[in-house]
Amino acid sequence: MMEFFRFLNDQLLKMNWLDDLISLLVENVFGLSAKGRIGGSIHFFLYDTIKIFILLSVLIFLSSLIQSFFPPERTRRILSRVKGLPGNILGALLGTVTPFCSCSSIPIFIGFTSAGLPIGVTFSFLISSPLVDLASILLLASVFNWRIALAYVVVGLILSVIGGSTIGALKLESQIESFVFQPSGSQPEEGNLSCNERLRFAFDQVVFIVKKVWLYILIGVLIGSVIHNIIPEEWVAMILGKENAFSVLIATVLGVPMYADIFGTLPIAEALVGKGVGIGTVLSFMMAVTALSLPSLIMLKKVVRTRLLAVFFGIIVIGLILIGYLFNAFSFLLI
């Protein structure tokens, strides 16, 4: 049974068959060593690009199917029944099965708030929504291992719960633009989707998301393959290595302004770990890229005032830095 699971994990998730195939290609067609500098970079680039695109398509299809059962109207109804900390936990959990498109987060924010949901619960939802989702869990398991994937999920959820609870406890309702609170007139009456409609929705999502992120992925893999085989290990270690006490800080600060999703950052993370960068440093970087970005902050600015935006930003940055140092300290448990 264990053997069978390992086989599935290696061939389907880690795609060892693809690894071997590309090695053959690099060695026999290009005539380069797959372990060498140039050959290794080409191998990394081809293998990672193909792997991420296959996994991305399959995973987005599956997670969109699940999403189609949790439209925000339903999420809001479920959330309105629980109060306090359980509300934050549920908000963070539901954030994992709802859209990762940042263009939806503002209407959802308004929809939740105007329906009377506490802002803390809404923020728990908004933090976890881009940060943790089914696709990212499986991709992390593919590129790293299951323990790191689970740790990422748990930590992401805890950050969402604590972040949301803190914002709730600070009573910052006055920091939200007043139009947000206006109750919405009609409630959309979206009937239940048929099985075919769900499948079509999932297929459309795959096309839409692949179109949206393919360039980020290529850039990510390109940077990854350069780090992987061309940049000397000592350079990377000097800036982001375990000996540099500021490594997590630097990784977070580098990650915040970057706008990509987890699919684009994974190849960079993979290459950095290969160069001996601590797992906590890499997690902080990935989470900073996905959880915070300039476009999403600009969007959020339309509905909240500067102080709440600063609190939101501050909590996440501090949280990410703490996560990074904790993971580095306990990384021996994960690898």
Partner: peptide, 9 residues
């Protein structure tokens, strides 16, 4: 958009 009760575009 929100005033119409729509949460997903």
């Amino acid at each position: 958009i929100a005033a119409m009760g729509v949460m997903q575009t």
